[in-house]
Computed example of a mutant assay.
Amino acid sequence: MSTTSIPDPPSWWYLRGWCILQGLKGFESSTLTEKDVPRKDMRGKWVIITGANNGIGFEAAKTFAAWGANIIMACREPPEWETHPSEAVEHCLDLAKSAGHSSIIEWWPINMTVLASVDEFAERWLATGRALDILCNNAGMAPYNSDETMTKDGFQIVHQVNFLSHTLLTFRILESLARSAEPRIVCTTSNLHFFGKMEFEIENLPVPKQKGPYERNKLYYQIWITEMNRRLVSSEKYRHITINGIHPGYVNSGIWNFSGTNQGTWQETIFRLLAGYLTITTEQGSFAIVNAATSAEFGPNPEVQGRGEPGAKGGGNYINRIWKAVPMPFVDDAGTRLRIWKGLPRS
């Protein structure tokens, strides 16, 4: 199958150097506290978090539970080395009860490697008739040991789990989000999007090749977030929905436990060695999700969306932990955004 690559501009070495510099900013490891991400009253709010039984998703769910939110933990049946969703639910219920809340917290199965499973989850949610306040598109898998694996839907597995299934879920439950007063969508992207290359398959369908799918789909994801935001604010019905992409930091979480054993590729060995020196905890990483989901700074921009607090940044941002950052220049190119958009699966 033929491909079309977007060539680098004449200042190739400058752009590469700039990308490396921006990517390295993702290793920022200062310790955040409640002062940086203050407690919010989330009683009565409904939150969906994909991948909520492990890593930063679980830590974010714990915070939302302690703050009084109702939570749907959207998770697969996990491997044995991860916390089972049923145990995660019980833990969050205990936190909510200890804080004096009578929250509803449930595990609803979803398999991001199967688009039909995403559809089934969305239908189940829509059948409740509830308005959704926060959607956290967080589930993900690591880049190695899976480069050549394809899903039964015909997509490279990392690309589908980390990107395509989340865009499908977002589209399917958009009506529910629209019924909330100030809904937010938080998408877990990565600083590694600075190392992604733009390549498109025939008919403009973006499918990463066998090498580098993780960096590439994180780049596609951030581009999609920017275009999605542009379309939301251009619509009277959806203008009040705020969507942002977050890099949680270099987190020592289960996503890097590719095989579930102490054996693995040389990449896995390197990540494990670095983890003891450069990473932040899953709790620290979860602040990125919580901040984007609740802070006034990344809430709706009143000048654009007709509601929100003065000075709020609104949507379409790339957030490095809790700070707005500059994304790859591709996100500002309307033609590139359109090509990414047109290639997405829809319900």
Rank of each mutant, 00 (worst) to 15 (best):
A293D: 09
H159M: 06
L174M: 08
S117G: 10
E199M: 09
Q22Y: 13
A296S: 12
A127I: 12
H193M: 11
S234W: 03
A122I: 09
E87T: 15
Y144E: 13
S234I: 00
N137G: 01
I243S: 07
E106M: 09
H91V: 04
G254H: 06
S253A: 07
I340L: 08
E82C: 04
G306T: 03
G343M: 01
D333P: 09
V47T: 00
S30E: 08
R337D: 01
A325M: 07
I270E: 10
G23F: 12
L192M: 14
T167P: 00
V114C: 08
P206D: 11
P10V: 13
R321I: 10
E34Q: 01
E215T: 10
A65P: 05
M141Y: 05
T170Q: 08
H193Q: 15
E201I: 02
I6R: 15
I255F: 08
N162A: 08
T226L: 05
I241P: 04
E82W: 02
K342P: 00
L32Q: 00
M42N: 05
S146P: 02
R43Q: 14
W323G: 07
D119N: 12
Q267K: 14
Y277A: 10
M228L: 15
E297K: 13
F271S: 10
F258V: 09
L115M: 15
N137D: 03
G314D: 05
V290W: 09
E77H: 10
K237I: 08
D8F: 15
T83M: 08
T4R: 01
I255W: 07
Y214V: 11
K97P: 00
A65T: 09
R43D: 08
M141F: 00
F64K: 03
A61K: 03
A296T: 07
N53E: 11
L273A: 10
T151R: 03
A325K: 07
E59N: 09
M112Q: 06
R39G: 02
I185N: 01
A312I: 03
